[in-house]
Nucleic acid binder design. Structure first.
Lengths: 194, 194
DNA sequence: GTCTATATTTGGATAGAC
DNA sequence: GTCTATCCAAATATAGAC
């Protein structure tokens, strides 16, 4: 039997890591970051607690991984939106994506909102939550540019107004998924902007 | 020396309880419910851990107290709004109060949002968070009635639209207090409704 | 009423066998 | 690579002295 190459080993290790990450977000969503134990995550991933430490240095490291992939996701969406031809289409893309996302997986949005509202004094969580916040600030600057290209009077204020409406909807839907008519509200909201 | 009456004792006990509750919300806001320890709360209240158990049956009981007082606050505001003569004034009162509240104490709003986004599987927190959610649902029904009195075409949808905008602003301000021009956005938002 | 000391539990992290 | 057994720290809760 051929010995495995270094790359092959690396790939296998990567798959194992992703399996654990997936288990982690499931468990964190269900029980919350603090209430979830390493053992919960390991069991969900189908491995032992000891082995988990072979892949992650601890619970904080698991959270870090999830936050980084969330950031990746956000950056990706903004990049995709930039490929659209007109500013309005770009903004529509951002809104559609955000709302579709929360509609499909409200608990995921809930989780990151939960993390974002974590008190700053919690060193572990707040470090990573800070990174997420900074990325969103960066992306919101890009959004201001889009409004600027549209030629509205006060692009900065208009952009914040847009984000406010969007996040309001996401928050409401994530909190009351069963009673919130997202499609109707979406139409109502977008029609006030475009 | 006169022996203290039962009422007097009760009053003293009540003051002690309130002191602990105050300490609890301070500590919970700073460290988060899970990360905060009973000992943290006791120290903040200036008493020993043992004594705290004389007043509260545990950490969950402390949270319960805080949630109940938050619910009390919400009910109070809605009652006050009902004394205003016209529907528009009632809604303005609700909005003004909510925004003033988040502006004065963003961390308090943050804390309750953090609690509200807590996963349902956490039996302790979710029981009380559920109570808060139910009260907000109750109050939102009252708000629909106000819009109905205004005679708008779809009071239910319009009321949700209003709440969405309001909560969006509160969320944005609580998340980015330094960069969010609340007064300007408030004017912008209210002008689209009235 | 109040505190100190202690019992108990939980869970993060490590060591060592296989 | 993987698991089991164990260590250790932290935190809840209680008991008992003052």
């Amino acid at each position: 039997m051929m010995p495995r190459t270094r790359e092959e080993n690396e790939r296998i290790r990567q798959i194992a890591k992703e399996n654990i990450s997936r288990a982690a977000i499931e468990v964190f969503i269900e029980k919350g970051y603090h209430a979830a134990s390493i053992d919960d995550v390991a069991r969900r991933a189908g491995i032992s607690k000891g082995l988990l430490y072979n892949y992650f240095s601890g619970k904080a490291d698991l959270l870090r991984e999830l936050i980084l992939s969330r950031i990746e996701e956000i950056v990706q969406v903004m990049k995709e939106s930039a490929t659209k031809p007109t500013p309005v289409e770009q903004l529509m893309y951002i809104a559609e994506h955000a709302l579709q996302n929360v509609q499909e997986r409200p608990s995921v949005y809930r989780f990151y909102l939960h993390i974002q509202t974590h008190p700053e004094a919690d060193e572990v969580v707040s470090t990573y939550s800070q990174m997420l916040k900074e990325e969103m600030t960066r992306q919101s600057k890009l959004q201001v540019d889009i409004f600027r290209k549209m030629g509205v009077p006060d692009p900065h204020l208009q952009s914040l107004h847009f984000s406010t409406a969007l996040h309001g909807m996401m928050l409401m839907y994530a909190t009351y998924p069963e009673n919130f008519p997202l499609p109707e509200l979406k139409v109502k909201m977008l029609s006030t902007f475009f």
